[in-house]
Design a protein around this nucleic acid. Structure first.
Length: 454
RNA sequence: UCCGGCGUAGCUCAGUCGGUAGAGCAGGCGGCUGUUAACCGCCGGGCCGGGGGUUCGAGUCCCUCCGCCGGAGCCA
């Protein structure tokens, strides 16, 4: 029975599909429809789009797993239901009962409708139509925009990437060690950290769980943390969020080479799993899987000095001692068909905990991974300084408050060992795999310089 | 913070040389038995971001403020 608006509460109390005779059709999700060809099923979802051809209405219904075209033919339903079906507004919540069959024109399935029930009609016009909208408008309606095809696909790929990352580390004997979100005053300088009140003192939202993972690695050997991190940088680019997710493995008795192997293995595993399980979503996003199928071992590994040489050959002004901006990363990444590892940057442009290269102490045993196609740095990491005196000296040289690092120095006092790790930025990885222009579409509710809501 | 750009109907936009506000979509009504951002006909819909200035006259030119977008720096 179709009820266009009103008496919704009553309907909710009696959620069964009202229809004459026969057994109740099973509730099926749209992504499973192919297995039910020829059967009568119930789809529970929302009206995505509607077309009509007089005696025939085409209702596109989405249920979170996909979108299916349902066909209402005037001879299959009552005249009242047929007329009401034509009046359904976009995003009406629906239960549709009908038979699954092959689409006559497309390689997919459709449903010929026998019964329709409105669960809830919209109280006002849905703001996002099947037409162009600007990003500001869409971001203001992010809570609704998530229902759209491309956003839906991107979030599913994101979830797959997160699952792949967890599966990768869990399968290799890593232990998940959650790092704190509140951190005490002054870790790596506070200018780009979000300050919050913490009872009678100040605290800062974490910008990395790494130091805590070093403690974790000394306790559990192979560890990783996975959570949100925060940067109060006034960055306005398509690669930046103020709140983003990072996975940070840390391994005791591992050196830089082992670190690079681990980073490479992780990326290959994630790409493989996404290609294997989310190909349909990549297609929806217009992402050519061929570009991702090239992401196989081994990745090119170049030194910082070689990267500078590439930039100079390309006519860019680059001299040793410069860090790379987005442009430089793009120039380098375009030389390769897969991610490129750049290692051994000058130590003085890197963080205090980086171990120096014994073969050239001006260099740090660090590595950045630059994604292909200009998606930028997705990994930064390296081997950590494990010598107590050298860490102490580095803390002093960076003007960091020694007191706050006493616990960190303890890790070098009680059985210090070589260790290494890295951080992988989830949103940039999602942007790369999905082929999205901007990281704001890679996270459900992005937090940016000018965006704190919804 | 700096540089550049944009604010016109619910949405996306056009608006000439300064001369009384336009289209498509969405909404409403009607038509169509296979549509694909369906299509066809009709109808309603405006603080032209706010303030100030120039002018007989400002959506249009100038100043200013606000909001947003893109990029740089910084970084994942």
């Amino acid at each position: 029975m179709l009820v266009p608006g009103g008496s919704v509460c009553q309907q909710r109390r009696r959620p069964s599909v009202v229809r004459g005779g026969g057994s109740m059709a099973p509730h099926v999700y749209i992504e499973e429809l192919a297995r039910h060809e020829g059967q009568e099923v119930v789809i529970k979802g929302w009206l995505y789009n509607k077309r009509s051809s007089g005696k025939l209405h085409f209702l596109e219904v989405r249920d979170g797993t996909g979108i299916v075209q349902t066909v209402v033919f005037h001879k299959d339903v009552s005249p009242e239901m047929f007329a009401a079906a034509d009046r359904l507004a976009q995003e009406t919540a629906l239960e549709v009962t009908g038979t699954v069959r092959k689409h006559p024109k497309l390689p997919e399935h459709e449903i010929s409708v026998r019964d329709l029930r409105v669960v809830a009609a919209p109280t006002q016009e849905y703001p996002i139509g099947p037409k162009d909208h600007g990003t500001a408008f869409l971001m203001d309606h992010r809570h609704l925009w998530l229902r759209s095809k491309l956003q839906h696909a991107a979030l599913r790929v994101r979830a797959e990437i997160v699952a792949a990352i967890r599966g990768f580390f869990d399968g290799r004997g890593f232990t998940l060690v959650d790092a704190p979100i509140f951190t005490p005053a002054a870790c790596e300088g506070t200018t780009n950290l979000f300050e919050v009140g913490y009872f009678d003192e100040k605290a800062y939202l974490t910008q990395s769980g790494q130091l805590y993972m070093e403690a974790g690695a000394m306790a559990l050997g192979k560890v990783y943390c996975f959570g949100p991190t925060f940067r109060a940088e006034k960055s306005k680019t398509r690669r930046h969020l103020t709140e983003f997710w990072m996975v940070e493995p840390e391994v005791a008795f591992m050196d830089l080479d082992g670190d690079m192997d681990l980073a490479e293995d992780l990326i290959v595993a994630v790409v493989e799993q996404v290609l294997g399980r989310r190909r349909r979503e990549l297609e929806t996003l217009g992402r050519d899987p061929g570009r991702l199928e090239q992401v196989k071992r081994p990745f090119p590994r170049i030194t910082y000095a070689e990267a500078i040489a590439i930039l100079q050959q390309a006519g860019k002004e680059a001299k040793s001692g410069d860090d790379f901006g987005g442009d430089e990363e793009t120039v380098i990444s375009e030389r390769f068909d897969r991610p490129v590892l750049i290692h051994r940057y000058p130590a003085d442009i890197k963080a205090f905990y980086m171990k120096r290269d014994p073969e050239d102490p001006r260099l740090a045993l660090c590595v950045d991974v630059i994604a292909p196609e200009g998606y930028g740095e997705i990994i930064g990491g390296g081997q950590r300084e494990d010598d107590l005196a050298k860490v102490e000296a580095s803390i002093a040289a960076h003007d960091l408050p020694r007191q706050a690092f006493e616990w960190y120095l303890d890790l070098r006092r009680y059985g210090t060992v070589p260790h290494a790790g890295f951080g992988l930025g989830v949103e940039r990885t999602v942007a790369w795999l999905c082929g999205l222009h901007h990281v704001r579409e890679t996270i459900p509710f992005p937090r940016m310089l000018e965006r704190l809501s919804p």
